[in-house]
Design a protein around this nucleic acid. Structure first.
Lengths: 133, 133
DNA sequence: ATCTTATTTGCGTATAAAGGCAAATAAGCA
DNA sequence: TGCTTATTTGCCTTTATACGCAAATAAGAT
């Protein structure tokens, strides 16, 4: 039973400015290295908070917060069994999304690298850096 | 002439933790409603800073900053003609990316809406809100 | 050269995010 | 019940971000 008149919005162009805040919050959830690392780790399947924290090299408390945030954006889902809490990827779009960005970033990294290579034939001692600061 | 051994990384799984910071920065650029609105606007083609600012209802100074930030992540490109600066979408992935997120967000909005509808048959006076806060 | 328009930058401020640490909560087990 | 383990929450500090406003810069036009 469908509730409203939102036909599953598919293009950002169609969003009213107010709704862009939701999209921004979604991106915000992905805008943190530790959270991305956690998501990467969760590709291996459901994991406990402690495991994830250890893998990412941060405290359990912080990882708990990160996972809560990801959960609020629907990126991960939580199940508690016994005294443990298991998290798993909940939004399949995450994969495509991250890979898409990785492609863009990778391409840009490559551009920067070859650009730098063109300016500095000798690989050692990057005296005058050519990075975008 | 290809410079390095980076074969255009395509999956985030393959990224070393250090590189995740770059991906995070990319997402961070998209994690702001005004910037998303500006990107939306730029779908119509190249625009001046002033135009974009007006469309988004913010000062020119702030829009200039936003666009600079988007530029640093390779999302937009700049061309100056006369006394004006024109910006345009530079990363085609942006479209796919935003639409992907809009789909996820839209679906989630729909879920929340129908969930709320199930709990509160009367549309007025949301006394006990059922939002995720 | 001076003025005008468009854009960018500097600086101060307010708000949000992340992490450390300790305490609170929850679920099993002796 | 008391103990243990796992997770979450509260409080604080630090750092980053967004914005307002004024001043600086850039490119034309008179």
């Amino acid at each position: 039973m469908q509730a409203t008149d939102l036909p599953s919005i598919s293009r950002m162009q169609d969003l009213p400015p107010a709704a862009l805040a939701l999209v921004a919050a979604y991106f915000q959830a992905l805008a943190e290295p530790t959270r991305l690392q956690a998501l990467n780790f969760l590709r291996g399947g459901e994991r406990r908070v402690g495991e994830i924290a250890e893998h990412c090299g941060c405290t359990q408390a912080n990882m708990s917060r990160h996972l809560t945030l990801l959960g609020k954006q629907g990126l991960v889902a939580r199940t508690s069994r016994g005294t443990s809490a298991f998290y798993r990827i909940a939004d399949e779009a995450t994969y495509a999304l991250c890979d898409l960005v990785c492609h863009s970033v990778g391409r840009r990294l490559q551009d920067l690298t070859s650009e730098r290579a063109a300016f500095a034939p000798a690989p050692a001692a990057p005296a005058q850096r050519k990075q975008p600061r």
